[in-house]
Design a protein around this nucleic acid. Structure first.
Lengths: 251, 251
DNA sequence: TACCGCTTGTGAACGCTTGCACAAAGTCGG
DNA sequence: CCGACTTTGTGCAAGCGTTCACAAGCGGTA
């Protein structure tokens, strides 16, 4: 990835307080960030249930991870637990939100208003979590101006101006694969540095742009792999009894 | 590794090498499986363009990975390249398909016919890749019988019988979070062993069930984290529009 | 205050993944 | 047939991420 990351950076950073947060943020492993988001959701549920304190064991259970891993993850963002007691739920929530940058609004633009684009535009989970959908784009002139999920669709040619104007920080690509790279290029030149890509293509972007991809076909194929592996195991390992290539199982 | 590999002899791999394939499949790292699916897509595109041979360097470039990694990934499924030349595209495609279990049909059931469920039911990418949508379910009686994307919706209470009857091997959960665990339990008791979960919940399942989750909120929050990190970096390290490594924030 | 039990935070070991570098193995031109 | 050139396949080392195990720290109790 970023090839020229300053390694032994004795780079004297500003002695200000934020330097602490910054240094720490840089050190958090990618995998841990993903889990922090999960913890956050579980914790939000806890708050609503009136839970005020939670132990690493409980939280880990609810999040589906090992408790040691959870504690290590939390240690990346600082030590806010109380030994012998656990974590204060609200404190934890606010710290995770801060680290994940959820204290700011992140305006989202969705490009490609097909089936998926519609679903995304109408998806209530975004705005409620601090990700307001600020703009929609499509190449079809017939769609232009038509409101979807309360937001009028703009023509794709206006990406640059509209994104800049509405301070879009996250672009979501829900176009057919053929159009994805071109759309991506436009988003990047509009100043969007974070992209969520639903199109089944490998996007080429400059180093400073962060891309995350959600690829349904790949997910399905990974599951397919496991089905196959299981069937093979059954064929090979099951001596007597359950089916060969059909359904097996249920211990 | 492959302990009893027949060396030197020009052993033509029989169309079926059950034990061999099985042993190998078990050894493939999870991360590599995900990449194999990506390679497969790139290769499919190559086939359509009439490309017959491709080098690891080219394929790696198109798939966005390091060429050494690609070669190692391919070595997990066997050595089908020709030194000095590269890989035969069609041969590679068929071997990856075999390993990923794409030689069988994997019927899919989608549960929860809301915005997302609609989009999934209409999504052309599934059937064309060997994942026919065989059943749709929803809890709303008004939807029952209504065809979506050509398939009539069944009531959720019929999951067990319908899934068994249509040999569903993959369940897709696109319900609201509150319903997800219950739906999951029903799918599992219907014999479904692979689940793709779009609901923002951590599902509890028996060991033998494989779950993959696609969590939009988490993806957005990871991107948010990067936005925040970047902003912090800018605040701390940017002198005058120039970032740490001389990278301009906005070209 | 002093002790006890519980839970955090983290050093250290382990294992998986990545990337390098190069021998092996093939093609191609003469 | 040979030698130059190309590209694969893989041993090896470095880097992360995960897990274990336990000392340190805190609240509760007498």
């Amino acid at each position: 990835m970023a090839a020229q990351r300053g390694e032994g950076d004795g780079v004297v950073t500003s002695p200000e307080a934020p330097a602490d947060v910054r240094e720490r943020a840089r050190a958090i492993p990618e995998a841990a960030v993903a889990r922090l988001a999960v913890y956050l959701r579980v914790l939000s549920g806890m708050v609503e249930q009136g839970v005020t304190t939670i132990s690493s064991e409980e939280l880990a259970g609810a999040a589906g991870v090992n408790s040691a891993k959870l504690r290590k993850d939390l240690s990346y963002i600082g030590s806010y637990g109380t030994r012998g007691v656990g974590y204060d739920v609200e404190v934890l929530v606010s710290h995770i939100e801060r680290i994940l940058g959820l204290t700011r609004k992140h305006s989202v633009a969705v490009v490609g208003i097909g089936n998926l684009g519609h679903a995304l535009a109408n998806y209530g989970g975004f705005p409620s979590r601090g990700f307001p959908v600020a703009a929609l784009f499509d190449i079809d002139p017939d769609l232009t101006g038509v409101p979807v999920g309360g937001i009028p669709v703009n023509h794709i040619d206006d990406i640059t101006s509209v994104c800049a104007e509405r301070e879009v920080s996250i672009g979501v690509i829900a176009t057919p694969p053929q159009a994805a790279q071109a759309v991506c290029d436009r988003l990047v030149s509009a100043g969007v540095q974070c992209i969520l890509n639903f199109a089944p293509v490998v996007l080429q972007v400059p180093d400073y742009v962060e891309v995350r991809k959600v690829d349904l076909a790949v997910e399905m194929q990974i599951l397919s792999f496991h089905v196959a592996r299981r069937a093979d195991e059954a064929a090979g390992d099951v001596v007597n009894g359950i089916g060969v290539d059909g359904v097996v199982i249920r211990p």
